[in-house]
């Protein structure tokens, strides 16, 4: 039987889509809008650092960021493939999308380990 790698990419896409759907809107509202606009006071640097260094927080942040990248990679690959009918560039698109997400994942791991 022909084997396919699609189940693997799809599972990352699905996990990333779920995490992003649950956590990103509120994170964006707080960090990207409420605090910069002064609706909320920015928490002290030391507190943020301490919180982010907690092993559970590091794991959460790593999964959220990395899986969000893979979620994008899978969806965007098919959007290019169908939306612009670029099926002849299938391999190149896949390498750029999943490769980009992998680079992002390594960067996230490196950043969080050295936090």
């Amino acid at each position: 039987m022909k084997t396919t790698i699609e189940p693997f990419w799809w599972s990352l896409f699905g996990a990333g889509g779920t995490l992003a759907a649950l956590f990103i809107p509120i994170t964006l509202i707080i960090n990207g809008l409420a605090i910069p606009l002064g609706w909320l006071d920015a928490p002290a640097y030391e507190n943020v650092l301490q919180l982010a260094r907690h092993p559970l927080a590091r794991t959460y942040l790593f999964l959220l960021i990395s899986l969000s990248f893979y979620h994008w990679a899978h969806r965007f690959r098919f959007t290019l493939y169908d939306g612009l009918q670029l099926k002849h560039l299938n391999l190149l698109i896949a390498v750029i999308c999943y490769g980009g997400a992998t680079v992002g994942t390594i960067a996230a791991g490196y950043t969080l380990i050295n936090l």
Binding site: G16, G17, A20, I24, T27, L28, N31, G32, L61, L64, I65, S68, F69, H71, W72, A73, R75, F76, T79, A101, G104, A107, A108, T111
Partner: peptide, 13 residues
Amino acid sequence: TSIFVAGYALVYL
């Protein structure tokens, strides 16, 4: 929407 999901993940990183 996936572009914005990944875009914000990058800002957060």
